[in-house]
Amino acid sequence: MIFLIILGMALVTMIPRIIPAFIVDHLIFKDWVNRFLNAIPYAALGALIFPAILYVIPDKPIIGLVGGVIAILLSLMNLNIILIVIGAILTVFILSQINWL
């Protein structure tokens, strides 16, 4: 039974991922479609970050928010992405120790 679920999940996940590989080659997009597709990564990143970042510590949205602000500040300082990730983890770790937050 579990394997039937896994098989079904695999198919419905795989098919939407794979279809564009076969069709994009056959299409020449109008300029605006290319602009749309080129903007997708920035739009997707925005949609993935917010509001989900607020739920990192589910009952304390402020902690995720501060972690995000720290990540922005570290990015603005042109730090390596690993350091940005570690800085945000440390921020959340420290803030989650504070009970009154």
Binding site: Y42, L45, G46, L48, I49, A52, I53, V56, I57, G64, G67, G68, A71, I72, L74, S75, L76, N78, I81, I84, V85, G87, A88, I89, L90, T91, V92, F93, S96, Q97
Partner: peptide
């Protein structure tokens, strides 16, 4: 658990680290 929960920010921090340089 405390560390694992804090590491939940990692992917969001990565997303932020990816998007800030082009925005700059």
């Amino acid at each position: 658990e405390k560390l694992s929960q804090s590491m939940g920010i990692a992917l969001y921090a990565m997303f932020i680290g990816l998007i800030i340089p082009p925005i700059k």
